[in-house]
Each structure stands twice: as C-alpha cells, then as structure tokens.
C-alpha cells in the first residue's frame, strides 16, 4: 500500500469532520486490507462483505473518537475490523462447528511468512514468535489472526481450557519480553 500512516491519519481526521470525499479516499486506501482481516477471521466471503460494510459505517460514525484511544491509524482501523469480524463469528457459531473450523485451519508456523514481511517491526514479532515453541506460536497467531476463542484453541490443541489459558498468557509475556529486547 503506497499510502503512509500519516496519509491515513489525515483521512481519518477529515472523516471525523464528515468529509465524504476523504471517507471514500480512506475506503480506497484501506478497504482491501480490512477486507483481508475480515476474511481471515470469518473465512466466508459473504459474511466478510457484510462485516466490512458495518466496519466502514462504524469508521464513519466514530472517526471523531479516533484521537482519544492513542492507537496508530492502521491499528485503529484493523482493531475495528477485527473486533467486528470476531463478534460476528461468536454470534453465528454453534459449538459443534468449532472443532470443525479448527481442523480446517492450516497448520501455520512463524517461518514461511517471515520472508515476505517487509517492515522491520513486523519481522521482529515474527522472530519473537519463532522463539516460542511451535504450537504456542500457532496459538497466539490463531487468537490474533483467526480470532479463535480459548475454547477453539483448547479444542484445536486438545488441552483443557485452563491449560490453554495458562499457555497463552505465558506465551504473550514471553513475546512481550522478546520484543522489548
């Protein structure tokens, strides 16, 4: 994406002033990324389209509060999209489908993507995920990228829920420690 973070921020601030032209520019600059985020969580094109539409309405209505949360512009937009997609998953999913969805998840390791990631910050999290045991890193990635719940993760790795929670919390703390080095 050629658009810089500063460009995106300027657009969000203009949207906060109800500038529809800026809103469409923001849509053009970010909708593909946010659609990718929704698709990754929802794994269904129709649902992802519905949620993306809601996400942009939320952005339109809430842009004036963007400044208050202290997030960088893309993080804010991705957070709005990701939370909306996860809320959709949690309301649509019957418990029986959880295991099935988890089984369909491709086994993903931290290494293959590493090469493709350009930004050094992003390389750093990939490297730090790489320091975790394999399935611990997969659990962190499953929670963030796929929006998996503790129940999804416990089913996927076939461990009790509390064990999963202990695992994930420890992994997150290791990740933080590694990234602050």
């Amino acid at each position: 994406m050629p658009t810089t973070a500063e460009d995106v921020e300027v657009m969000i601030l203009a949207v906060a002033d109800q500038d529809r032209t800026a809103f469409l520019s923001l849509y053009d600059a970010t909708s593909a990324k946010l659609f990718g985020v929704c698709l990754r969580v929802l794994k269904d094109r129709g649902d992802a389209e519905d949620v993306l539409q809601d996400v942009f309405i939320k952005i339109w209505r809430n842009a004036d509060r963007y400044k208050a949360n202290g997030l960088s512009p893309m993080t804010w937009l991705i957070t709005v999209a990701r939370n909306a997609a996860i809320d959709r998953v949690r309301t649509r999913k019957a418990p029986a489908e959880d295991t099935e969805a988890a089984e369909r998840m491709p086994a993903s390791g931290p290494t293959p993507e590493g090469a493709a990631i350009a930004a050094s910050e992003a390389r750093r999290i990939a490297a730090c995920l790489g320091e975790l045991e394999d399935n611990r890193a997969d659990a962190v990635r499953g929670a963030y990228l796929d929006g998996q719940s503790y129940q999804d993760l416990a089913d996927r790795f076939d461990v009790p829920l509390n064990t999963m929670r202990t695992w994930l919390r420890r992994s997150l703390m290791k990740l933080k420690e590694c990234m602050s080095r």
Binding site: Y27, K33, T79, R82
Partner: peptide
C-alpha cells in the same frame, strides 16, 4: 494493540467487490 497488531502485516489485502463501495457510499 500495537504489539499484536504487527501480526496483521502478514494478512494479504483482498479487494472487496465494487458494489460494496457504492453501498457504503450510499449508506454514509
């Protein structure tokens, strides 16, 4: 949010269908 948000870097952008832009524009 910033720390974990770095993982989103590996999510590939996917262009949404054109009709969605028109719909969002109309809704706004």
């Amino acid at each position: 949010s910033e720390r974990l948000g770095l993982m989103a870097d590996e999510i590939d952008p996917v262009t949404p269908p054109a009709h969605l832009r028109a719909r969002v524009e109309r809704l706004v």
